[in-house]
Every structure is written in structure tokens, then in C-alpha cells.
Measured scan of single mutants.
Amino acid sequence: GQVHVGDTTYHFPNPEEARKFAEKAAKENNLQVTQHGNTFKVE
């Protein structure tokens, strides 16, 4: 799974890890998570 936060892309071998990371980043920054397959975008 990939997580895009601003201009930075994080790669995770496990989509579940990617999702947890995205949700945590979104919560900390008052942002939203959008999911496209195994790619998550925090914005």
C-alpha cells in the first residue's frame, strides 16, 4: 500500500499498515483520508 501525504509518498508492504498510518496522519493533522484501491491519500 502507498500513502500520499502532501508531496511525500510512504510505501508499506501491507495495505492494512498503510491504512492505519493514513488514518493516524489524518487525525493528527485534521485532514481526510481518501482510498483508491491500496493507495491512500491524506489531504
Score class of each variant (00 low, 15 high):
1 G>A: 15
3 V>N: 00
12 F>K: 01
40 F>S: 03
38 N>C: 05
24 K>Y: 11
41 K>N: 12
9 T>K: 08
21 F>C: 03
36 H>G: 04
15 P>W: 14
1 G>K: 03
25 A>P: 00
27 K>I: 11
28 E>R: 09
30 N>P: 02
12 F>Y: 03
35 Q>N: 06
9 T>I: 15
42 V>T: 04
7 D>P: 09
3 V>E: 01
8 T>I: 14
39 T>Y: 10
37 G>M: 05
28 E>N: 08
27 K>V: 09
42 V>Y: 01
33 V>K: 00
24 K>V: 10
6 G>S: 05
31 L>H: 06
28 E>T: 07
23 E>V: 09
2 Q>D: 07
39 T>F: 10
4 H>N: 08
24 K>E: 12
13 P>T: 12
15 P>K: 13
11 H>N: 10
40 F>Q: 03
9 T>L: 12
9 T>D: 04
8 T>G: 05
15 P>E: 14
4 H>A: 06
4 H>G: 03
29 N>G: 13
13 P>N: 13
29 N>H: 14
9 T>G: 02
11 H>A: 06
14 N>V: 04
10 Y>P: 01
35 Q>P: 04
8 T>R: 15
4 H>W: 13
21 F>E: 03
3 V>L: 01
26 A>E: 02
5 V>N: 03
4 H>T: 14
3 V>Y: 01
30 N>M: 08
4 H>R: 11
43 E>D: 11
19 R>A: 07
18 A>K: 00
10 Y>V: 05
7 D>R: 09
20 K>W: 09
41 K>F: 15
6 G>I: 05
21 F>S: 02
29 N>L: 15
7 D>L: 10
20 K>Q: 13
30 N>T: 05
30 N>R: 06
31 L>E: 05
27 K>D: 06
1 G>Y: 15
6 G>E: 06
26 A>I: 01
23 E>L: 10
4 H>V: 15
24 K>R: 11
22 A>P: 00
34 T>M: 08
31 L>F: 08
40 F>R: 00
6 G>A: 07
37 G>T: 02
38 N>A: 07
33 V>L: 08
18 A>D: 01
31 L>S: 11
5 V>P: 00
37 G>A: 05
32 Q>A: 11
20 K>A: 14
26 A>T: 03
42 V>Q: 03
1 G>R: 02
23 E>H: 10
34 T>H: 09
40 F>D: 03
6 G>L: 09
43 E>H: 14
3 V>Q: 00
13 P>L: 11
9 T>C: 06
35 Q>A: 08
26 A>V: 02
23 E>D: 10
18 A>W: 00
19 R>V: 04
24 K>P: 01
43 E>P: 04
42 V>P: 03
8 T>Q: 14
12 F>Q: 01
7 D>H: 12
3 V>P: 00
15 P>L: 15
38 N>S: 09
12 F>P: 00
17 E>H: 04
43 E>V: 11
16 E>R: 03
34 T>F: 12
